[in-house]
Design a binder for these strands. Structure first.
Lengths: 114, 114
DNA sequence: ACAAGTACGGATAAATTTATCCGTACCTTT
DNA sequence: AAAGGTACGGATAAATTTATCCGTACTTGT
């Protein structure tokens, strides 16, 4: 995290959306967390294509950007839960719009991205 | 364009949305084109922060993905126009959702991305 | 004691995207 | 004829994101 961005974010709303949402697994993570998959291990099992490390990194970014919150329960066996924040919930319509348009148009999308 | 993607696109709709929409200037380009800014030179003047070359590359990708169409008018002085395709128009609600949420939350977004 | 579960993160390589620099061609205005 | 407009694209460097490899610590069940 000792990385300082060099290409600036512009003063448009959607530039910031890029910044917080354009990670490889972020939409997937937000979707699962919104649907009650709250623990890191669970999320990793739900998204087997992603490396464990990458999910960690992207979860940390989502926490930093206050889209999700992280609660560490100090129990015998370590337990962590991620939840959407109010801010994250307000983003959910955006995420769902992307997911739904993608699913509705998947046939066309497969064709044009070949 | 002799580049072959190595990280595969998954079978989810939103993965394809990433593929076609996650370029630095794509939302901006789609927005302007939807609002009648149709010529490459015009678009470059509207988006002075972007290099000319990058816009070209991203416009070509949008054409390849059939989000916009390109018409070359064979006139004395070269004239080119980009227009949204029907497919591109169907994407517009997604783009607008992103832009609007971003603008509505820009204060918060600036804070969390610091 | 050892295997497997919970969880986290440093360091680096590979892939991908974005920026920069260069050059082309043709037409119009000065 | 030179300057400036239209437009396009190759080659490469820089920035950024994603993947891979490694190691930590603690707990439970065998």
């Amino acid at each position: 995290m000792t990385y300082q961005r060099k290409i600036p974010i512009l003063e448009c709303g959607h530039e910031y959306v890029r910044e917080i949402l354009y990670g490889r697994w972020k939409i997937t993570l937000i979707y699962y967390i919104a649907n009650g998959v709250s623990r890191p291990g669970e999320l990793q099992r739900k998204i087997p294509q992603a490396g464990r490390r990458v999910l960690d990194v992207q979860l940390n970014q989502l926490v930093k950007h206050e889209i999700i919150s992280k609660t560490v329960y100090d129990e015998a066996v370590a337990r962590v839960e991620y939840r959407l924040t109010a801010f994250g919930s307000s983003l959910l319509p955006v995420v769902m719009t992307i997911i739904e348009w993608g699913n509705q148009n998947i046939k066309e999308l497969k064709r044009v991205t070949r």
